[in-house]
């Protein structure tokens, strides 16, 4: 489903973020990408949702090279991918409900469909009673749940989570991990980047470890440390 072929990424200033990456992720997999800060985790994810383009090699999404998509059409490609970030990236002027609804509105969903789907998904993540709250009125864990709801409401093929628990306390972290696993059981491929040992151990699925931009380990069922 996602395939990296000999991918290198060099940022301006000759900083080699990724080097010679070959990686294949199948549909329905749950892959944890681990490694220290600056090891290239975020860059790897950015190449999937086309925020960055590879300097060398190609990244394929369902056998189509992502770098061949015109920039103007990228928003349409991104509708296949849900994203969750450490810093949430919620629209501050919108309520939880509106933040999730926005992801559907941009896809031209009708008002009736939105009114049906948004409360449903917010219920799933456990925020059914906080739909009208603005981001600044929610705790970190709650914000991240809104993000998960927004990322998942369109039933994307892939969900990408870049350090989603970086700003959360242990109990909120646990809840988010459980939600990610739940989303994975609904046939969505999940790619999680984290340097949090406990959550990778808890997931207990495929682990890809990066160091200085190279893959140094890829174990099908793994813990943070071997």
């Amino acid at each position: 489903m996602i395939r990296f072929e000999n991918v290198s990424k060099i940022y301006p200033g000759d900083f080699m973020a990724l080097e010679g990456i070959n990686l294949k992720i199948e549909k329905g997999e749950f892959v944890s990408i681990i490694g220290h800060s600056g090891s290239g985790k975020s860059t790897l994810l950015k190449l999937i949702y086309a925020e960055e383009q590879p300097t060398e090699g190609h990244v394929y999404f369902n056998d189509r090279p992502i770098d061949s998509i015109k920039r103007r059409l990228l928003p349409f490609f991104r509708r296949n991918i849900g994203t969750v970030f450490q810093d949430f990236k919620l629209l501050p002027q919108k309520t939880a409900y509106e933040n999730v609804a926005y992801a559907l509105e941009v896809c031209d969903e009708t008002k009736e469909d939105i009114a049906e789907q948004v409360p449903e998904i917010l219920d799933i993540v456990g925020l059914g009673d906080k739909m009208e709250k603005y981001p600044h009125q929610l705790s970190g864990g709650e914000k991240q749940k809104v993000c998960l709801a927004r990322a998942f409401v369109r039933r994307p093929l892939v969900l990408i989570a870049d350090e989603p628990t970086g700003n959360l306390d242990p109990s909120a972290t646990l809840e988010i991990v459980e939600l990610l696993l739940k989303i994975n059981t609904m046939d969505t491929t999940v790619v999680l980047a984290s340097h949090n040992k406990s959550i990778v151990d808890k997931v207990n699925k495929r682990v890809v470890e990066l160091e200085n931009g190279k893959i140094i380990r890829d174990s099908m069922i793994g813990k943070y440390n071997v």
Partner: peptide, 12 residues
């Protein structure tokens, strides 16, 4: 917010 909107899949 422009960046967020683009990430969520909104066209320009």
């Amino acid at each position: 917010e422009f960046e967020i909107m683009r990430l969520v899949g909104a066209s320009n």
